[in-house]
Structures are given as C-alpha cells and as structure tokens.
C-alpha cells in the first residue's frame, strides 16, 4: 500500500496504538456512545422539519 508520487514515497496516515486502543476501550466508548447519539439526534431533528411554507 505504498503510493509513489513525484519520486516521493507516500503512505496513508496510520492511527497510533493509543488511538486504536481507545477505539475499543469501554469507558471511553460509553462516553462516545452518548456523544454520537446526541449528534445523530441533532441531525434527525434537523431533517424532520419537512413542512413547506404555504404558497
């Protein structure tokens, strides 16, 4: 997975070990669960106002 561009060897970025660890760390993920749900709720509320203005 090494891409060569203009004689430079470019690799995609990779997560660090702590990042990978935090992705499955239960206490942190419980907090993220709440945060993501809030974010998605905001998105749902934003997308459910579908009444059109009267012509």
């Amino acid at each position: 997975m090494i891409a060569r561009s203009q004689n430079l060897v470019v690799r995609p970025m990779k997560p660090t070990r702590p990042t990978v660890f935090m992705r499955v760390l239960w206490p942190w993920q419980l907090l993220r669960f709440v945060a993501i749900n809030l974010r998605m709720t905001a998105m749902i509320l934003k997308s459910h106002h579908t009444r059109l203005p009267r012509a």
Binding site: R23, A42, M43
Partner: peptide, 14 residues
C-alpha cells in the same frame, strides 16, 4: 459542524 465521523466500538453498539 454537522458533518462528522469517528470510528469505534460505540459505533457498533449504535
């Protein structure tokens, strides 16, 4: 503000 993304176990639970 509203375009977001993250990877993790919480996503699987959701």
């Amino acid at each position: 503000i509203y375009t977001t993304g993250e990877l993790g176990l919480a996503g699987h639970w959701i």
